[in-house]
């Protein structure tokens, strides 16, 4: 499967602070990729690099088949983006926003936009300032999908939504993705959401990728074990306390060797990554 984008050792600094410290990711075309991390881990920075809003200080980005140091307008037109808090012009309604945004995209499909608005239950005649948070997120999704992008980037689109609105948004996202087969890369710190939506996930911590793979692979890689002493067995990595990470095959070997390992929920696994005692060099 070809990659929608590849990030390799990407570095980004805010002054002296390294927001991304050698981040590497591979997102394949047509997949839904969940990007998990705590607040400040580097999720939004990664998405902004992909949108060309920021430029990396180091590393390389291959986006939609082109290696780029800055994202050109021609590539930007192939990307749909929904930000964490969509900053729409408050005086515009959905129809006016569609007219405005659409004029920047040669591939803009006005009929599709209206269909999306209907499907997502977004009123066309109400000003953006009057819309609820959930409806604004749906409006952002419609605006991002109407140009029929090859890649859809969602930056914590459900942050701040109530559980019902979040569920509605996610359901419709799944329907639309299945309809089109668009590559979706979304960031979140909600484990349940990622588990439900993502084919593959990446966990970022302190600007570095700590895990990349399927949810099943993640579940099989991290377990809790009680060790007699502090010595960490070869091939294991201590995430936090008695939680260790290892190749699933190693866990099988360890089990057959008499080591009692307890499987963890995805939530606990994420917490273990997020609260790792120390990062590997």
């Amino acid at each position: 499967m070809t990659a929608a984008f590849v990030l390799e050792d990407v570095v980004y600094r805010f002054g002296a602070v390294k927001a991304l410290d050698g981040l590497s990711l591979v997102v394949r075309q047509g997949e839904v990729y969940g990007f998990l991390g705590r607040n400040g881990a580097g999720k939004t920075t990664t998405l902004r690099l992909l949108m060309g809003i920021l430029r990396p200080a180091g590393g390389s980005i291959e986006l939609l088949g082109s290696r780029v140091s800055r994202v050109p307008v021609s590539l930007k037109r192939r990307i749909g983006y929904v930000s964490q808090e969509p900053a729409f012009y408050p005086w515009m309604n959905a129809q006016q926003l569609g007219g405005f945004v659409g004029s920047f995209y040669p591939t803009w499909d006005a009929a599709e936009y209206l269909r999306l608005l209907r499907m997502l239950d977004v009123p066309t005649d109400r000003r953006a300032a009057e819309l609820s948070g959930g409806t604004r997120s749906k409006l952002g999704l419609a605006l991002a999908l109407a140009p029929r992008p090859d890649l859809l980037l969602l930056d914590e689109p459900t942050a701040g939504l109530d559980p019902v609105a979040r569920a509605e948004f996610n359901d419709q996202l799944i329907i639309l993705q299945r309809e089109r087969g668009t590559t979706v890369f979304f960031s979140s710190h909600l484990v349940g959401e990622v588990e439900k939506l993502a084919d593959r996930i990446g966990i970022v911590q302190a600007g570095r990728t700590r895990f990349e793979g399927s949810v099943v692979h993640l579940r099989d890689s991290v377990r809790r074990i009680a060790l007699a002493d502090d010595a960490v067995p070869e091939g294991f990595e201590r995430l936090r306390g008695d939680i260790f990470r290892a190749d699933p095959a190693r866990w099988d070997l360890a089990g057959s060797g008499g080591l009692a390992a307890e499987k963890l929920s995805l939530e606990d696994i994420f917490l273990a990554f997020a609260r790792t005692d120390r990062l590997p060099a």
Binding site: M51, K76, R77, S83, A87, F88, Y89, V101, Y105
Partner: peptide
């Protein structure tokens, strides 16, 4: 002040 420039920056425009 309204941060709407962030919205503009996401559009295909320099």
């Amino acid at each position: 002040g309204g941060s709407t420039q962030l919205f503009l920056e996401t559009l295909p425009m320099g």
